[in-house]
Design a protein around this nucleic acid. Structure first.
Lengths: 147, 147
DNA sequence: CCTATTCATAGGTGTGCACCAATGATTGGT
DNA sequence: ACCAATCATTGGTGCACACCTATGAATAGG
């Protein structure tokens, strides 16, 4: 049986983007799932590593994630000992979230997993093409609504 | 508040791919939703337009979608009058699916919607860059497991 | 001929993702 | 001192997506 994807679809960058993106997402998910993680866990750890401690509301704003979902992600990250919550003494409504050394180590592992996935997905491209692709994606990403 | 995405994430093509891809997927979905459609509807119409009538199992194989899900998509496409189901007289287990003229017209509209989304997402890229991106995506897509 | 396989169908599950409303504690504005 | 707004939290909802099982009709292979 012919399994060729319809040219009407492959002619659309949008379609390819959504399909390749989904593949990337799925493979990333498969890497994280065994550790009981989803993409937001990594994103939160990365935000803390790159920008230091955040109030939860700032994490939500930076990542474009719902405040109520931040709570749930942090519940799991604290349970893993990767993150610590502490009331902000200056404003006791806020909870200050900090990355633990264990959290930093976990992030490094997750980054490595992501790079392994990258190797799979970008396999057909040479180094120069990968650099171009990354530049294109960065520029598109920058214009995206953070939602 | 600083809403910069963590560099640890934006350094990963995989992350950008999954994020930009999701945006593309979402915007496409928003275009189709008012008409009660999802991406698979368009994909099925495209397969029929590009390769002619299919048995349902062949649609499933070509698109990498579950046979039981094909049934549901076709239920809706037939209800819209875009597709017709007929028993294959040569093998009466099979159902031969054909595109109606209305279906072809609907596909054209959906393509136009997809191109509009494309215009949004690819806005930061010039024509040459878009062509390069499309080539990259095509090559990556070709190596993807059809699932 | 009859048994195993194929095909379409019906009905259901689980997961990830995004979003929403209600609540209690705390703060800021006036 | 009070009222309105902010923040974290709880406990949901709904959707898209992918997958699974069981069933009946039809076919193919020995």
């Amino acid at each position: 049986m012919d399994e060729t994807t319809p040219p009407t679809l492959t002619a659309l960058s949008t379609y390819l983007l959504s399909r390749v993106g989904k593949a990337a997402r799925n493979r990333l998910g498969e890497q994280l799932a065994p550790r009981g993680l989803r993409l937001w866990h990594t994103a939160v750890l990365a935000a803390l590593a790159d920008f230091g401690a955040h109030a939860q509301r700032d994490l939500a704003a930076r990542l474009g994630i719902h405040a109520s979902d931040v709570v749930k992600v942090l519940d799991e990250l604290t349970a893993a000992g990767w993150v610590e919550r502490a009331r902000d003494p200056a404003d006791r409504r806020r909870v200050r979230v900090t990355l633990t050394p264990a959290g930093r180590a976990a992030l490094a592992e997750q980054e490595a997993a992501a790079r392994a996935v990258q190797e799979e997905i970008l396999a057909p491209l040479d180094a120069e093409e990968r650099a171009l692709l990354h530049d294109f994606l960065l520029r598109m990403h920058r214009e995206l609504p953070l939602r």
